[in-house]
Amino acid sequence: MVLLVTSDNEQFQTEKDIVERSVLIKNMLEDVGESDQPIPLPNVSSSVLKKVTQPSTGPTEIDVRGRYLSTASTTVESPSRPPILEQSQDETRKRTTDISEWDQKFITVDQEMLFEIILAANYLDIKSLLCRRWLQDGSQHDQGARPPEEIRKLFNIVNDFTPEEEAQIKKENEWAEDR
């Protein structure tokens, strides 16, 4: 067991194999060696850490969380697959379509929490599927990409293009949107 201390001074007893999915913590543990000293995580709050590492209520969630955080899939079709963030070009795009139920549940936390989780995952260096999923915000867009207007609205982004500029960009990249 490893003791983690969050930014709001809460302590978490976590199993070693779970925390070691975080490259940051894994390296720390390797540097320090066996020790009872708590590991401080000044950039992660307790509510976020719970989401990232602590077992959730249902057994299925624990199960998928393991898969989620490790990303090293155990299914036969992918033993050679490198972690998602380093995987080959083909795979990256192919995999964007398979969304587990749990991923969807995970993503339905409120937006601010979602960003906090993303920052935490980045800080802890957890190779997760986190990043790519949230674009769709839990709902699936089978009809191609989410339109820019919707993305702006969803994430409160100001459009700083002139209509002409936007039309020109649309034209240039039409090959990617065309079906």
Binding site: I84, T92, R93, T96, L129, C131, R132, L135, G144, A145, R146, P147, P148, I151, R152, I157, V158, N159, D160, F161, E166, I169, K170, N173, E174, A176, E177, R179
Partner: peptide, 16 residues
Amino acid sequence: QHSTAADQASLSRVSR
């Protein structure tokens, strides 16, 4: 990098 080409094309129109 983890989104599809269609998403990327759409995102490129969101803002500068």
